[in-house]
């Protein structure tokens, strides 16, 4: 709330949608227009409502950051997700933090592995985990690792998305 966070790893998108479901309200999703990988509304409809997502296609990362800052500062949207390809420098990261604080909204940057910025409040690494126990095919077991936290300790959780209650449940680590 009021800060910008970072997430990396293969399950970063799932983390973003889970956060959107938890925050509620409107969301702005900023992506670069050349990226052929796109989010699928029929896929994340189970997690959060696609009608609350507005997608902005930008030309490059500079525009992505400008749009994200504008959206964060307006305070209209609860969550701003930006897909970044390059590492942020301290100025850019700090500006996002200030914008998020002014608008009291949450920013989330989906970054490539190892390209975090120092200004981020927290950084998460989310990876999917194979779940040999459950017989059900649509397992959503993930490993969420808090790898940076400015105001707390680092921790690791194993979580699963519960479709019926539409929320994250923390589960014990899978058996080896």
């Amino acid at each position: 709330m009021g800060r910008t966070h970072e997430v990396c790893g293969a399950s970063a998108f799932a983390f973003a949608f889970a956060l959107l479901a938890q925050r509620g309200g409107q969301a702005v999703w900023v992506r670069e227009a050349w990226d052929r990988q796109q989010i699928n509304p029929t896929g994340f409809a189970d997690i959060s409502d696609p009608s609350r997502v507005t997608v902005c296609n930008t030309r490059d990362q500079i525009e992505t950051l400008a749009v994200a800052e504008e959206a964060l500062r307006s305070g209209v949207v609860a969550l701003v997700v930006m897909q970044l390809g390059k590492a942020l420098n301290l100025t850019e990261g700090r500006r996002l933090q200030l914008a998020a604080r002014d608008g009291a909204s949450t920013g989330l940057a989906i970054i490539p592995e190892g390209m975090g910025s120092n200004a981020a409040e927290t950084r998460w690494r989310c990876t999917p985990v194979f779940d040999p126990d459950t017989g059900v095919a649509d397992s959503t077991l993930q490993h969420w690792e808090l790898i940076k936290n400015k105001s707390g300790t680092l921790r690791v959780w194993y979580v699963r998305w519960d479709r019926t209650t539409r929320r994250i449940t923390v589960v014990p680590p899978p058996r080896k």
Binding site: P50, V53, N57, V76
Partner: peptide
């Protein structure tokens, strides 16, 4: 209004919805 403001920067046609 936010969509309009972003639209002045990146073009209104680049803001989409599913």
């Amino acid at each position: 209004d936010l969509i309009t403001r972003i639209g002045t920067r990146i073009g209104l046609e680049n803001i989409q919805r599913f």
